[in-house]
């Protein structure tokens, strides 16, 4: 179970948010909502340990995530604002690098199945720089399909995706929740997900 207590974030001399607490239990999705600039992305980065909270802490199964270190990082897959796609590499190469890095299955069959599900199989041989924004986003999201980690942290995952890809991702998220996975995401789109959905409203 992911838990955060009393998180506070200060950027420069402005307090972005304070006293933010949340819990996500297995099979639950937490939808972080809020206007632009309310600190959604920062909160997500904080949950991943990329940003250090001024006060409060992130806990996994009751223990501080900071203490667990790599043990905690092994449990999460993060897809941020940026796609982390290398323009010079092809889609499968990008995915392979990620799989190796995270200890996810890295055999060619798994990777190409993930890319195929997102409709990116036909582009397996071209460098990602010729892909459109939506296609790059799909390639980045293929990481979720090969991931075995219980916690997904997604920052605006539906951005730039077309209707078909949104549906695929929606199914993937639902499947993940049914397998007792946990999802924390931000999005401005209304994408219905069946199951236990909680909402966290951020400031402003």
């Amino acid at each position: 179970m992911l838990e955060a207590v009393d998180l506070e974030c200060v950027r420069g001399d402005r307090r972005l948010f304070a006293g933010v607490g949340l819990t996500v239990a297995p099979g639950e999705l937490l939808h972080v909502r809020g206007p632009n600039g309310s600190g959604k992305t920062t909160l997500l980065r904080m949950l991943c340990g990329l940003v250090k909270p001024v006060a409060g802490e992130v806990r996994w199964a009751g223990r501080p995530a900071r203490e667990l270190g790599d043990g905690f990082l092994a449990l999460l897959t993060y897809v941020g604002h940026h796609n982390a796609i290398k323009d010079e590499l092809t889609g499968p190469e990008n995915l392979l690098v990620h799989a190796r890095l995270c200890g996810a299955p890295d055999d060619a069959a798994t990777l190409s199945a993930a890319l195929e599900r997102l409709g990116m199989k036909a582009y397996g041989r071209v460098p990602c720089k010729v892909l459109s924004a939506g296609q790059k986003r799909r390639t980045a999201l293929a990481r979720l399909l090969i991931s075995r980690s219980p916690l997904w942290i997604l920052d605006e995952p539906f951005n730039a995706l077309d209707v078909g890809a949104v549906a695929t991702l929606q199914q993937a998220i639902q499947g993940h929740l049914q397998r007792d996975g946990m999802v924390v995401l931000t999005t401005h789109q209304d994408v219905p997900i069946d199951g236990a959905v909680k909402t966290l409203h951020m400031g402003a």
Binding site: G49, L50, D70, L73, A84, C102, G103
Partner: peptide, 12 residues
Amino acid sequence: DGTLEQLLVAPA
């Protein structure tokens, strides 16, 4: 391009 973030959250 965000790869660095991924390196930081990688369990290595």
